[in-house]
Design a protein around this nucleic acid. Structure first.
Lengths: 200, 200
DNA sequence: GACTGTCTTGGACATTCGACCAAGTCGATT
DNA sequence: AATCGACTTGGTCGAATGTCCAAGACAGTC
């Protein structure tokens, strides 16, 4: 294989690892499967990463980053609160239906990391990040609106409700496989959240 | 070891497997770890089970059975709809806080089974079972009440909403570790469900 | 007491895994 | 052209894992 900077090779290995995990699950992502996916010799792996755990950490960081990017980019735009809420929800849901494997991987990684002593910290931080993102989403939902709005429940509680509901509905879809049914449950959540926003 | 019927030994191995999985995760439940937990020689394993997959199938069946038992036993009893709903929710939540490892295992097993070709069918049936249980719970909630009640959303949608919300809140607690915060989100769900029950 | 079917068990097997290394290759700098 | 640091790679190691087997032990039956 041509000479490549170690940093570039690291990125390729992370991408390859994600591809393998989406296709065959976290447990199938052995060092050998990953280098095969990246079309590299096995020796490359431990030249670029001190250990498999180090690679896993980077994979989690990349995946979390992707998810975060998408979430925050969807809140922007004008319109009433209900409209923006619906748009954000719909965007999230569309991505779940388009890329179920990626979402399945997210849950798998969280679980895997929680069991691995060296990655437990990463797992916790991952969830904190999601919670913070949903909190920002909720605040953006009221803050940008022309009229002054107030939530009838504390924002931290609402953030956790939204986080849990999204996770739950996603998990339901991934396991049941019925996009329509899960989508209707999600709409119920959206309507509920909209109702919780009262005029101040 | 004394002579024991193969069927009895099977049960002990299933229990041992669950104990190991709750403590150290599904991936740590090797045949050797399981027989060590059950205090048996390794040879016993494949005398009782054709393969590890066969044991896993039995483990899933047992766990699902436990969960189901608990859920249905809590719906009974008198009182208004709100009261019974609260009681059922509280009972579920108490069990999550008391035995987080058991619930974590449930999610791990579902995921593991979904990836294993031979167990994929079992995973699907597992989720169907949970959905059916929640459907029965919702129907029991209205059916037994003195006054005639009707839900303002279709029961199948409501069942999925409840299933997703419970799963989501549980997952949130398992990952964030904050029982109070997750509990408040769950109360929000309970109040919402109660609101969705309108007088017919 | 011989027989038969059920149960017991220590050891062995092939495979897979993460990790490691030594020898080699390349390219820029001096 | 000599040097040196960065990169490449095929092979190998020890550990762990699922599965299997052969030889024995035991209990009930004829």
């Amino acid at each position: 294989m041509n000479r490549i900077a170690a940093s570039e090779r690291r990125e390729r290995l992370v991408d390859a690892a994600i591809a393998v995990m989406v296709r065959d699950g976290v447990s199938a992502a052995t060092t050998r499967a990953i280098v095969a996916e990246a079309d590299m010799p096995l020796g490359s792996f431990h030249y670029c990463f001190r250990s498999k755990e180090e690679l896993l950490g980077e994979v989690i960081a990349v995946i979390t980053g992707h998810t975060l990017e998408r979430a925050l980019s969807e809140v922007a735009g004008g319109g009433a609160l209900e409209e923006r809420l619906c748009r954000a929800m719909r965007a999230y849901w569309q991505h779940v239906v388009d890329e179920p494997g990626e979402h399945r991987l997210t849950y798998e990684l969280t679980q895997y990391a929680a069991r691995q002593p060296g990655l437990a910290v990463v797992a916790e931080r991952q969830y904190e990040t999601y919670l913070a993102a949903n909190t920002r989403l909720i605040e953006a939902l009221t803050g940008d609106d022309g009229e002054r709005l107030e939530w009838s429940v504390p924002v931290p509680v609402l953030a956790r409700y939204v986080t849990a509901a999204l996770d739950g509905v996603t998990l339901l879809y991934l396991n049941e496989g019925n996009a329509t049914a899960a989508g209707e449950a999600l709409e119920l959540v959206a309507r509920h959240v909209a109702e919780l926003a009262g005029r101040a």
